[in-house]
Design a protein around this nucleic acid. Structure first.
Lengths: 363, 363
DNA sequence: TTGTAAGCGTTATCAT
DNA sequence: ATGATAACGCTTACAA
C-alpha cells in the first residue's frame, strides 16, 4: 500500500509516514480517524452535523495525510461537476480576454470552475468542443459568439444549459442569449462623426460571416441615411477584424478614393491597422482624417493618439454571463436584456467644417 | 428509465426513441447491440480485436443513441485524465495569450485537453489553483511564471509532472524549467541603443518581485557597464509591467530628469504607457527620444511608430512546453535549453550623435 | 448523529 | 475474441 516512494526533491507538507501523498483516499482518512467514510464525506461537504471530536479527528487526519478529495469520483457519484465549459473562438484574442476575466471572477464566487477552449472560428471545431464539454459532463456552457445555428445549439442545450454571448436566441429554460447592441453602437459612432461635420465617412467592415460585423455595418448605414447623407458602397472596404486586414483595406481605400475625412472601423484591431497605413502615408490622425474603432480594447486608450471607439463593458458582460449560467443551472429564471454600448470620445476624431477650427484638441 | 422527456426545441440527431440523449450509458449500448459492456469498451478504445459484425452493431447503437462516453467515469477507472493544468498569472493578459495558443495547439495533437486558470500574481491563489489541479487529477501541469519557491513546486510535482515556463529549476523527472534568457535580451536591446549613439538611456523597470523583471534590469545595467557608460540609478524609474505604470513612470522621469535620449522599458505594455506620456508632452518618438520595449506583443508592430522591442517566440515557447510536458508524462527524457530572445528593430529608435543625421527613418 | 451499502459509468483482470 | 466481475473514489439513501 505504501509503495509510494518516488524520490521528489524536498517535498513539503507531505508526511513521510504511511500512505502519504497523491493516492490517499477518503476511506483511508476514515480508517485513520476511526469513523466511517460517510462521516468523512459529510464533513468534507458540510452536509450534516458531526460530533466536534470526530470532526477534529478527521480534519487532523486530512491534514496529516495531505488528503485532497478526488474531484472525478465526487462528480461521478454526485452527478455534478461544478464546471462550466466556456467556448471562445480564440482564447488568445485580446477581444475575448476581458470576457474571460469577468467570467472567471464571477464563477469563482459560487465555486464553479471554468474550462476555456477555442474553436478557431470554425464550425466543425465548435461542434467538437461542445461534444467534449458534454463528454466531460459540464454543468453549463457559455458560448462566446457561437457560429452554429440555433437549432443545433438548442439540441446541445438538452445536455447542459447554454448561454450564448453576443447573440439573440429564442430564450428558454436551457438556452439563452445575451445580445449586444452592435447596431446601436455603430450608429452612435457614425452619428458622432456626422455631428463633428464629417460627410465622407469611410467604413472598414468585418468579415461578413460574423453577425456582429453585419450589424455594425448596418448601424453605419442607418446613421448615414438618417442624416440624409446616404450610403455609398464606394466608401466601404472589406476588412477581417484583424490588424493586417485593416492595414490592407486602408491602403486600398487611400489608393482608390482620396476623398474622405473620417474612417470608421468595424473593430479596434482593424483601426490599429488603418492607423498604421495612414502613418505610413503621412496622413495625420485626426488632423487629416478622423478615426473611430469599435470594442475599446485595453490598449486602445494608449494608442497615439488615444482611439475614439465604441466601448463594450466586456468585463461586466462576462460577469453577467457567468451569473446567468449559474442561475440557469439552478433552474432560476434569468432576465437578460441586450447590452447597450457607449461611445468613448478620445482623440482620434476632430470637428471639421466651417474653417479649420481647433475643435476637440483642448481638453 | 425513459423519463427523459424534457422538451427541448428541435434537438437534432437525437432519436426520439427509447433512452435517447444525455444519459445513455455504455451498458445500454451493450444491451442494444447484444454484446457485453467490455466489448463496447474495447471498441471505444480500440484496445482489442472484435468481430466486424459486433463492431458494426455497436457503432450503429452508438450513433442511434447519440452516445458519448462519460469522461469522468473513464478517468476514474483508468487513472488517466488526458488533461493538462495550465496555470497562468492572468488568462486575460495579452502577454500570455500567445503562449496559450501554442500550448493549446501542441496539446491537441497527442489528444490532451488543457485547463487554463489564473492565479492573479498571487502566491496564495497559485497554491490553491495547483491543489485544484491535483484534485482534478490532471496528468501534467504547466506553469507560466510560477511565483512559488522551488521546494514547494517540487513537492507538488510528486502528484503530476510539472513544467515551469520562464524559469530555471533543478531539472528532474517530475519537475523541469524552460528558462527564457531575459538578461541577454535586455543586454542586446541596450547595446542597440548604445550603438545608435545613445548614452543617456533611461530604464522603466518591472515589479521587483518578478524574476524576469530583475533579469531585464540586470541586462540593461550590464550592457551599460560593458560599454563603459556606467549605471546611473537616477535614470531608472519603477513601473509595474502595465500601461498605467509606464505612463506614471515616464511622467516622473520627465519631470525630474530632462536629460535622456532614449528609454528602455521592461515590457511593451510599459512602453505603451511611456509613449503616451511623451505624446502628451509633445515629445516625439523617435525624433526626440528613442523607445524600446520588451516582449513584442502582437499590437506592438502596429504602434505608431511601430515599436522596437525584444521578441520572445511565444507561440513556439508554448508549443515546446506542451511537447515537453507530454514527454514527461510518458516518462521520456526532455531536453530544454534556454530560449534565446531577439531584438526586432522597428521605428522607435534612431541614431543620434555627430549631427542630427536622418538616421534610421529611411526604410 | 453515524454507519452500511448500493450505486455513479467506466476500465481492467480474469477466465473461458 | 468475449464475458463476468472486481475495482476506481466518492455520494447518498436507508437504517440504526
Amino acid at each position: 500500500m505504501s509503495e509510494d516512494t518516488n524520490e521528489a526533491p524536498g517535498a513539503p507538507n507531505v508526511p513521510s509516514g504511511p500512505t502519504a501523498g497523491p493516492n490517499v483516499t477518503l476511506e483511508e482518512i476514515a480508517r485513520a480517524a476511526g469513523v466511517s467514510p460517510s462521516t468523512v464525506s459529510r464533513i468534507l461537504n458540510g452536509s450534516a452535523r458531526v460530533l466536534p471530536e470526530k470532526q477534529r479527528a478527521v480534519e487532523e487526519a486530512i491534514a496529516r495525510f495531505n488528503y485532497r478529495p478526488n474531484v472525478l469520483a465526487r462528480s461521478l457519484a454526485s452527478g455534478r461537476t461544478e464546471t462550466i465549459g466556456v467556448l471562445t473562438q480564440a482564447v488568445s484574442s485580446p477581444f475575448y480576454a476581458e470576457w474571460l476575466r469577468g467570467i472567471e471572477d464571477a464563477l469563482a464566487e459560487p465555486g464553479f470552475t471554468p474550462i476555456f477552449v477555442s474553436s478557431r472560428w470554425n464550425v466543425v471545431d465548435e461542434k467538437a468542443r461542445l461534444e467534449e464539454f458534454i463528454a466531460r459532463r459540464v454543468d453549463g456552457i457559455i458560448l462566446l459568439h457561437a457560429q452554429l445555428d440555433e437549432a443545433t445549439l438548442a439540441g446541445y442545450s438538452r445536455y447542459a444549459p447554454m448561454l450564448v454571448l453576443g447573440r439573440s436566441v429564442q430564450n428558454g429554460m436551457t438556452l439563452a442569449g445575451l445580445p449586444i447592441d452592435n447596431l446601436q453602437g455603430a450608429r452612435d459612432a457614425t452619428r458622432h462623426l456626422i455631428e463633428q461635420g464629417h460627410r465622407e465617412i469611410a467604413f472598414i467592415a468585418g468579415p461578413s460571416s460574423h453577425e456582429d460585423a453585419i450589424e455594425r455595418l448596418d448601424g453605419y448605414r442607418i446613421a448615414l441615411e438618417e442624416a440624409g447623407i446616404g450610403f455609398d458602397a464606394d466608401l466601404v472596404e472589406q476588412g477581417d477584424y484583424l490588424e493586417t486586414g485593416g492595414l490592407a483595406a486602408m491602403e486600398r481605400l487611400m489608393a482608390r478614393r482620396p476623398m474622405f475625412t473620417a474612417v470608421f472601423c468595424a473593430n479596434d484591431q482593424t483601426a490599429y491597422g488603418a492607423r498604421l497605413a495612414m502613418f505610413r502615408r503621412g496622413v495625420r490622425v485626426p488632423e487629416d482624417v478622423s478615426l473611430v474603432g469599435f470594442d475599446d480594447l485595453p490598449t486602445s486608450s494608449y494608442m497615439t493618439p488615444p482611439l475614439t471607439t465604441v466601448r463594450q463593458p466586456t468585463y461586466e458582460i462576462g460577469r453577467l454571463a457567468a451569473q446567468g449560467i449559474v442561475q440557469m443551472i439552478r433552474k432560476q429564471p434569468v432576465a437578460l436584456s441586450p447590452i447597450p454600448l457607449t461611445l468613448v470620445t478620445r482623440e482620434t476624431t476632430r470637428r471639421i467644417g466651417a474653417s479649420l477650427s481647433p475643435g476637440d484638441e483642448h481638453r
